[in-house]
Simulated scan of single mutants.
Amino acid sequence: MDTLLESDLDKFPRHQKIEKLLSVQLGIPSLKAGKIIIRDHRDWRINEKQIEYCWLINVSRAFAGWCWLFTINFKETKFRDIANPAESIQGIFTVDDNGAIAEFYKLTRDASFRDDVKGLTAYDLFSASPRITLDGVGYEFIIFGHNSEVRMTLDNPDTENWKIWEKAVWELGGELAKRSGSKQLEEIFN
């Protein structure tokens, strides 16, 4: 987990490891937007899907713990005689001290799903908050879109636009934590 002294350069390898852990857990080669080729144990191509976008958010709450939330949005595609529907996978997970996924829950939503976190596009990137973080909540927000990858770290995001974003994150996190049945995850969002 983050320490107060961790630099942004130290976070990047950790983010890469988290991305790889999640990809393996979901049986896909990467989280990057675009066409992904799914292979079996013999390295034979068994399916192709297309990721429209993906985001990951690390929620770290003092004295309660931390977890990752994610959404991966797949476009409708066809590979040979496999019809891949348009769908979104949302989930929540933690990573244990050995670097493995510990708690994991995912939910598949159909094409009518509205992603509230993606739908928020008005961020004031230079004004999360000028004050000291007293509530002990921090975020790492990673976004994968076509030809873009954005990484942000936020502490105490209490400006108007960031509070709207934070509310959407907490609503989703609370829903997924409750559905997961994990007391550890539920405690983070209480």
Score class of each variant (00 low, 15 high):
2 D>G: 00
2 D>V: 12
5 L>E: 11
6 E>G: 02
8 D>G: 03
10 D>N: 10
10 D>Q: 13
11 K>H: 09
13 P>K: 07
13 P>I: 03
17 K>T: 10
18 I>S: 08
21 L>V: 05
22 L>Y: 08
26 L>Q: 09
27 G>R: 14
28 I>M: 04
29 P>Y: 05
33 A>W: 05
34 G>R: 02
36 I>K: 15
39 R>D: 00
41 H>R: 14
42 R>A: 06
43 D>F: 15
46 I>F: 05
47 N>A: 08
48 E>H: 04
49 K>V: 13
51 I>P: 04
52 E>S: 13
52 E>V: 14
53 Y>S: 05
54 C>Q: 11
56 L>Q: 11
57 I>V: 15
57 I>F: 01
59 V>H: 03
59 V>Q: 07
60 S>V: 04
62 A>K: 14
65 G>H: 09
67 C>Q: 09
67 C>G: 03
68 W>G: 01
70 F>M: 06
70 F>L: 04
73 N>F: 10
74 F>D: 00
74 F>P: 08
81 D>M: 09
81 D>V: 11
86 A>E: 15
90 Q>N: 13
92 I>G: 08
93 F>I: 01
93 F>A: 02
95 V>T: 08
101 I>S: 02
101 I>C: 01
105 Y>N: 07
106 K>Y: 01
108 T>I: 12
109 R>S: 09
110 D>E: 09
111 A>W: 01
112 S>F: 03
114 R>G: 00
114 R>T: 07
116 D>I: 05
117 V>K: 02
120 L>P: 00
121 T>A: 03
122 A>D: 10
124 D>K: 13
126 F>H: 10
129 S>L: 02
132 I>G: 00
133 T>G: 11
135 D>R: 15
137 V>H: 14
140 E>P: 06
140 E>F: 09
143 I>T: 14
149 E>G: 07
150 V>L: 14
151 R>S: 06
152 M>C: 03
152 M>W: 14
157 P>G: 00
157 P>R: 14
157 P>T: 03
168 A>K: 10
169 V>N: 10
174 G>D: 03
175 E>R: 06
175 E>L: 12
176 L>M: 11
179 R>M: 10
184 Q>W: 07
186 E>N: 10
186 E>Y: 05
187 E>Q: 12
189 F>I: 04
